[in-house]
Amino acid sequence: MEFYGTQLASRLMLGTAQYDSPALLAQSVEASKASVVTVSLRREAAGAQAGQAFWSLVKSLGVHILPNTAGCHGVREAVTTAHMAREVFGTDWVKLEVIGQGDLLQPDVFGLVEATRILTEDGFKVFPYTTEDLVTAERLLKAGAEVLMPWGAPIGSGRGLNNIFGLRALRAHFPTIPMVIDAGIGRPSHAAMAFELGFDAVLINTAVAKAGDPVRMGEAFRLACDAGLAGYAAQPIEERDMAVPSTPTLGLARGLAVE
């Protein structure tokens, strides 16, 4: 899989927030074999230099870093945060979040398109956190995004893939755009399903960080991603309304069981 020309070994991406300790975060990333971690500049530190200790820990994980603009509610705020992140982490990747609604932490898709355009012009490689909406996806691609990150369900809700019809349609309309299901995944089976639908990667934070045993859950997600990916590649059977016996019924002594 490739994002903006960078080859990645694993389809699993992990967020770095909410772990009980940095040590637990490091062990979970290791167990999950994630190839990318996201890190929030804004929530973790009040100033660019002040979070150095934590950011050094994140850098030492030895995986790609995708800084995010989590918690930004406006275009300007998100753009400023992205610039700060580029300085701190020395990467032009940015996971762009522009939040429009406090309760569902739903993306403000209008602000998102605008911020994507500005950041692309500034040389960023933008990973926009969006909904499954087709028109928004088209506008984001026009604005310069080459990767899309549609939600499965609201951030932290653990509800899985809320709108499978919509996600299928999105996948079908943009078959060559790398797409990451971001937000809402609560269980390994949700991640497997994302791959079965043909998505390229999943990004998970709360489901691992807040699990009873985050390290084991990291491993469980690694296995689920592999299973989903292999299942998609192996072309699943079509669904049917009627049962189809897997052993032939021809010649079954139909009358015998009955009196």
């Binding site: 929530r43 973790e44 530190a45 009040a46 100033g47 002040a50 979070g51 150095q52 200790a53 934590f54």
Partner: peptide, 8 residues
């Protein structure tokens, strides 16, 4: 709980 040595 903020991962930061900010002392303001």
């Amino acid at each position: 709980m903020i991962e930061s040595d900010d002392n303001r």
